[in-house]
Amino acid sequence: MERPRDQAIDTRPRAEVSLPDGQRLQAAVTRRRRDRAGVWWYDLEIEIPDRDDDRRHGPTLTSRMITFSAPHPVVQPLPGEDYSSLNPAPPHERRRWRIYDAPRTSPADYYIHRDDCAQCLGDRLLSDAEALQALADPETAVPCPVCRPDTILRTA
Rank of each mutant, 00 (worst) to 15 (best):
R124P: 00
P90R: 15
A37Y: 03
D115N: 11
W40I: 13
I152G: 11
R96K: 10
R32G: 10
A8Q: 13
P71Y: 13
A8R: 14
L132D: 03
G38A: 13
E2R: 02
V17F: 14
A141Q: 10
P143L: 08
D115V: 06
D150W: 01
V39S: 15
S63A: 00
P77H: 10
C120A: 12
T11E: 12
T67F: 02
R36C: 05
L19N: 03
D150M: 02
C117E: 12
Y100T: 03
R32L: 15
V75K: 12
D150Y: 04
A131V: 06
A156I: 07
W97D: 12
R104Y: 03
L61W: 01
E45H: 07
R31E: 14
G38K: 08
R148D: 13
C120R: 05
S63N: 04
Y110K: 08
L153W: 09
C117V: 06
I9M: 05
T155D: 13
D10E: 14
T105M: 00
I46S: 00
D43L: 04
I66N: 06
Y42H: 12
P13H: 04
I152N: 11
T67E: 12
R3Y: 09
A129C: 01
A118C: 03
A134E: 10
S127N: 03
Q133R: 14
C144K: 00
D101W: 05
P91C: 00
D101T: 09
T30W: 03
D10W: 01
L126W: 09
R154Y: 06
Q7V: 15
L126I: 03
G38D: 12
T151F: 12
D128Q: 08
P49N: 09
D101M: 03
G58N: 00
I46K: 02
P59M: 02
C120G: 06
R148G: 07
D35M: 06
V74D: 15
C147S: 11
D123S: 14
V29I: 06
E139V: 01
P149G: 02
I48Y: 01
D21N: 07
D21H: 03
C147F: 10
I99T: 10
P13W: 05
T67P: 00
A108L: 05
P91D: 09
D137A: 07
P138N: 04
D50A: 14
F68N: 12
E81A: 11
W40K: 00
D43W: 06
T105H: 03
T140N: 04
V17N: 09
L25G: 01
S18P: 02
Y83T: 06
R124D: 12
P88D: 06
Q133E: 14
P77D: 15
W97C: 08
P79L: 09
E45T: 13
D53Q: 11
